[in-house]
Design a protein around this nucleic acid. Sequence first.
DNA 1: AACCAGGTAATCG
DNA 2: CGATTACCTGGT
Length: 324
Amino acid sequence: MMQKTLRIHPNGPFDLKLTIQSGQTSQPPWKFVNGEFQELLMIQGKPCFIGIHQKPDDLDGPLTLRAESKYEIEDDEIRSKVCEIFDLEHDLMELYSFLESSEKLQPTIGFCRGLRLFKAQDPFECIISSICSANNSIARWNKSILQIKEKWGDEFDFASGEFHSFPSPETLMKVPEHDIEEMELCGCIGEPSDYKENLKSCGVGYRCSYMKEAARMAHEEIDITKLGDMDYDNAFNEVLKFPGVGPKVADCILFYGYGMGQAFPVDVWIGRIISALYFKREEIKPPKARTFGMEEFGEHAGYVQLYLFHYARKSGLLESLKKK
DNA sequence: AACCAGGTAATCG
DNA sequence: CGATTACCTGGT
């Protein structure tokens, strides 16, 4: 049994708790136990428990990492996986000088210092999570994704607890859609409501068929590993082919799943914030807000979206935008 | 009890 | 094409 403790020094400030709990569409928050955030990570195909600890309010200090696996995994493999998920090599001070240069964006820094991209550990998980998040509340899609992992992911046991991986496209595409289908599969015994091992019972609603079909496409039609090597526009058009994926979800997938910083996901709130800050509150349609964001913020678009939303949430701007 | 929640797909003029 | 509308579900 491999057990080791590592340290990581982020490039600039990092707020672990804020980042994990900021509701990004990549994955639900990690489990929080004994002052550390925990998750199962597949590192080069090897299941590995990771516990990350950050001293409270020590946004500029190093992180302490606890890793546990029955496989032997190099320190650098573990570090690079964690660095990738939290975008720790990204120079945030460079982002901040960009934000400082703008009168509109400068105020976000004080509210969001240390907030980073919370990338999915695997693109497929991000695709499904993002589809699930559309027209949905954070609490509900988080719950759905956790159930999907528990029901169809592989279970791995560690000294620190048991965890489930996210199911593969092939596994997910074969999952029964609803209780009726599952009951028929099991020989029609009992009532439909007795059956819980189906996608609909995870509370995904009408997104059910989208998620199953997206899983099938990821398995047999679209090479989702290749998306990361494509340029942004091609990748955008490619992910739009998945059912349940429109412009907003596509941008989420490219940003949270593939780390493409020029993506600018526009939901109702970002639309209202952009309208309030840059268009004298006149109504702006999502495509226009998206184009504006991409041209105005360039490679920082994704982060600006992240910072604007959390700034608006904490500063009270969001509240003021609710009432007309 | 209507109404809303971090959109999308289907339908209509 | 641009504009409307239905849609699962869990919460107020």
